[in-house]
Every structure is written in structure tokens, then in C-alpha cells.
Write a protein that binds this DNA or RNA. Structure first.
Length: 450
RNA sequence: GCCCCCAUGGUCUAGUGGUUAGGACGCCUCCCUUUCACGGAGGAGAUCGCCGGUUCGAGCCCGGCUGGGGGUACCA
């Protein structure tokens, strides 16, 4: 099995493209491979850059960067489609010579006029000219069909198809022609791509036909939509892979989540590693209907992956994300409470930068009846502690709760606000322990004085 | 307009002739360190888009319709 991911560098790698790349990767790394049990297939990366106007080197870099971050490594490439121009021209000359293609100066205007005469369901058929763009000859009748690996039989009546333009008047080839030639040359066995390519498939099939070659198998993945049910775009928030990375999502979680948008790996389980997904992925299990991207669920899954990481590894990632160091102790007590890397600093940053300033929290919690009194007692008890760890801190705080007949929060919240500056922090006992006796006492004093 | 694809709670999915239609996210209630999150216990939420047909029996099979999506470029 030989698959490929062929993005066009006209923008950043979007979630839809990422999922296409992921599914191809899963196929190449899974047990699939038709008969070749346990044998890894190969994954080719090809940059579809025949549109010289819109393709940029910066976009290529961004796509490569996003794929690397996701861990979707490829075996061959990145191949540049434009680099294969000589071969494209040869194939084009062959089709022209054999009468499978012809020059035509007909433009959109001419095609429209043609349809007005012949009916909207009649595909355009031009007459050969000496020069002009090159059109592929589509049979007048019959159907061009294929067995889509996710959708089953799909067929297009030839009569309804226009003779597609496969090369511009200047001789440069167009997408539908270049892809077919490249897929053939690269020995691609399975083309797995977005559903937006489904109507391109018959054209490419016709190119294979004209070339007298056996086409690969095709599979078209359902679209990914935004929350409004529209095709995913920049308007939908974090639509590109780098945006997701910048917002603190883990590549493990992004892969896991986008894989779920389109297929299930088990009836009652959703947390999977790449290896598990590769092991279980099957094209015939892929959904045929479009899916809506839901960041809430991504967040949840991210939290799961985050917690599945060893503390040292999570610390390493958080240090890279925040640009700070010495985070391990804070990470250890915060990991249960964050869902993304970006959640960490707002929760635990005060451990390094000192309490935050939240006047409302201060006024409300420390202004509550008896709060300062409670805090004063807490201070004395903590200051007198011999062994200063989370367990000892908890004992003291609970003693205050019990002896005064208060609710836990009436003791914990004033303390929390005193040391964190807000009502938000990791678990209070652990936080106090990490802070240490001296800093804790000093912070309480400061709060009581303020 | 024309061609193609699709249709299970708000969202993602499981379910391929007989199930109280399963799970997850989200939402609500309660518990846990009155936050946040995790975990736990409950709950609301689906006439399986609609109408016919096949069948003893249909979410599952067939047809039509409606709705949504994709394509319709000398873009990819």
C-alpha cells in the first residue's frame, strides 16, 4: 500500500487537511496493506504547486512544520509537483498525438453558450483547433465510475461532463492532469482525500484511461464543518494546526480528536494513541457524512492526553510553552486541573510571579464575616508546623474547620485568596506545601495587612 | 440550473432486520478541597429528516421527497 498526502500550499494546514494527512498516515502505519499483513505501507508527501499564482514557499514551510508537529512523518518527499513538469509535458504530448486531447480556445463564455443550445446537462464538447488550451476528450456516452472505499459505487454520466481543460494555452498543465500523472508515476495505490475532490475523480480516471494505465483506488473523506455548519475557515477560530498548537493543544490530542471526526475506533472508548489508531483504522469504517468541529470536545480530550503524559514530559512541554523553567512542582499539583498548556500559567503562575491582583475576590472573600479572624488562626497554625507538607497542612486546616464548626470553604478560600490573589489555584494543601512555610506566612501577613 | 455525495439527541460517534437505540462532549442536580479541573452518583435531551414500499418485524433493504454539503475555473 502506497498512499500520499498532496496539499496545495495556498495557505496554512487546516484541520481538514490535517485529518486527511492523518488518515493517510494511519493507513501507511497500520496493518492494512492488502494481504501484506503487518507490513508498513509508504506515505508520500507531495506539494501540489501547479498554481504558481497562489503557491508560496512560506506556506510550504508552514505545512511541513504543522505535519512535523503532529508527528505525521512521511517516507518520501516533499515532492514538488511543478518539478515534474517535463514528464507532464510528455504525457500531454502523448494524449494530443493519440487524439485523446485537443487544443481549444473555448473559454467559459463559449461553454455557457454551448449549454444554452444543448441543455445544462450536456457536457461541453469542443472542436480541435491549432492552438489554445488543451482539453481532454470525454466519451459522449457511458459512465465513468469507481468504487469509493468509503462510499461504495459512484458513477458519473459521461454525457454530463465537460471536456476538462488539462493544460493552459501556454502549455502548463492543470491540477486534474498533473495529479493523475503523478499518482501514476509515484505508484500510488490508494488516493485518500477530501470529498471536495470526488467530482474530480472521473476526470482523473479518464486521464488514466487515456494514458492506458491502471488507476489507484479512491476514498473520499467527509468534509469538516464549523459550528455553523459551514465549511471550516479562518472565521471559525482555531482552524489551522498552528493555531491549535499556540492555544496549548497537544499533538496527541489533536490527532486523536480529528481522527474521531469521521470514524469510531471502538463502540465505547474515545481515547487513543497513534499506535492504537493505526492498528484499528479502516477506510470502510469511515463516516460518509460531514462532521462539525467542536473545540469543547477537543479541550476535554486534550486534558486526558495531558494527564496521560508523565510529569517530566508534561513539565518539559509546559516549560517550552511558557518559556519558564523550574516548573515541575507546580506542574505536579496543577495537572489535574488544566485542559490545555495555556491553562497552566493562569492557574499556577502566582507560584512564581507572586499573587495576582483581583480586588473583587479580595474584597469578597477577605471581607466576609470572620474571614480575617480565621486567616489569622491559620497563619499561627501553619507557622508553628514542624513538617511542612500537604498532609500536615491539610490536618491543620481541617482542625480549624472542625473546631470552629465552619464549612471547608470558609477556611480554604480566605487562605487561597491570600496566597494566590484570586479564588483560583491548584489544590490548596498542595499549593501551600509547594510555597513553603515562609512564603505562605509572608503572603498571609501581607493579605492581613492590606 | 446541471452533476455528485450525505442524513442516528445540540455536537462527534456505535448500531448493518427483532436493542428499554449504546458511548463521548456539552447541559442540569448531588458528592469530593464553595474556584477550576479530575473522579463518582443521578438526570434532561432522539417520534433514528419526511412519505411510501419490501418484510411477521426496518435506524438498518428499495423508491420518492425535503434538507444539507461538494463540484461546476486556462484554481487546487
Amino acid at each position: 500500500m502506497r498512499v500520499r498526502f498532496a496539499p496545495s500550499p495556498t495557505g496554512a494546514l487546516h484541520i481538514g487537511g490535517a485529518r486527511t494527512a492523518l488518515y493517510n498516515w494511519l493507513l501507511a502505519n497500520g496493518p492494512a496493506g492488502e494481504g501484506a499483513a503487518g507490513r508498513r505501507g509508504s506515505f508520500v508527501l507531495r506539494i501540489e504547486d501547479t498554481d504558481r499564482e497562489r503557491s508560496t514557499e512560506a506556506n510550504v514551510e508552514q505545512i511541513l512544520d504543522a505535519l512535523s508537529w503532529l508527528g505525521l512523518d512521511w517516507d518520501e518527499g516533499p515532492l514538488s509537483q511543478i518539478a515534474n513538469t517535463p514528464r507532464h509535458r510528455m504525457a500531454l504530448a502523448q494524449l494530443l498525438a493519440e487524439g485523446h486531447a485537443y487544443h481549444s480556445s473555448a473559454d467559459a463564455e463559449v461553454v455557457r453558450a454551448y449549454k444554452e443550445r444543448h441543455g445544462a446537462d450536456r457536457g461541453f464538447r469542443g472542436t480541435p483547433e491549432a492552438s489554445g488550451a488543451v482539453r481532454l476528450r470525454v466519451p459522449d456516452d457511458g459512465v465513468t465510475s469507481f468504487t469509493d472505499l468509503v462510499r461504495g459505487e459512484v458513477s458519473f454520466p459521461n454525457a454530463s461532463m465537460d471536456d476538462p481543460i488539462i493544460a493552459r494555452a501556454d502549455g502548463s498543465v492543470l491540477y486534474n492532469f498533473a495529479v493523475a500523472v503523478d499518482d501514476l508515476d509515484e505508484g500510488i495505490t490508494h488516493v485518500v482525500r477530501g470529498e471536495d475532490h470526488i467530482s474530480n475523480t472521473p476526470k482523473q480516471l479518464l486521464v488514466f484511461n487515456a494514458l492506458g494505465a491502471e488507476p489507484p483506488r479512491y476514498a473520499h473523506l467527509p468534509m469538516l464543518l464549523g459550528a455553523d455548519g459551514k465549511k471550516l475557515s479562518k472565521r471559525h477560530g482555531a482552524a489551522s494546526v498552528q493555531e491549535l498548537r499556540d492555544r496549548g493543544y497537544l499533538p496527541e490530542a489533536v490527532n486523536n480528536y480529528i481522527a474521531l471526526l469521521g470514524t469510531g475506533f471502538a463502540p465505547d472508548e474515545e481515547f487513543f494513541t497513534m499506535a492504537e489508531m493505526a492498528e484499528r483504522f479502516r477506510l470502510d469504517r469511515v463516516s460518509r457524512s460531514p462532521a462539525v468541529f467542536d473545540e469543547q470536545k477537543l479541550r476535554h480530550l486534550n486534558g486526558m492526553h495531558l494527564r496521560a503524559l508523565p510529569v517530566d514530559e508534561l513539565t518539559r512541554r509546559l516549560e517550552q510553552f511558557t518559556g519558564r523553567s523550574g516548573l515541575r512542582a507546580a506542574v505536579e499539583i496543577s495537572r489535574e486541573k488544566i485542559q490545555t498548556l495555556a491553562d497552566f500559567w493562569p492557574l499556577a503562575g502566582f507560584l512564581f510571579d507572586g499573587p495576582r491582583t483581583d480586588p473583587d475576590a479580595l474584597a469578597k472573600v477577605l471581607g466576609a464575616a470572620g474571614a480575617r479572624d480565621v486567616l489569622t488562626e491559620v497563619r499561627q497554625r501553619l507557622a508553628a508546623l514542624e513538617v511542612f507538607d500537604a498532609h500536615a497542612v491539610e490536618q491543620q486546616l481541617r482542625a480549624v474547620v472542625a473546631e470552629r464548626g465552619l464549612k471547608p470553604g470558609q477556611v480554604f478560600q480566605p487562605l487561597r485568596v491570600a496566597i494566590a490573589g484570586t479564588t483560583v489555584s491548584p489544590g490548596i494543601f498542595e499549593t501551600v506545601a509547594v510555597l513553603g512555610r515562609d512564603r505562605t506566612v509572608a503572603l498571609i501577613d501581607r493579605a492581613l495587612a492590606g
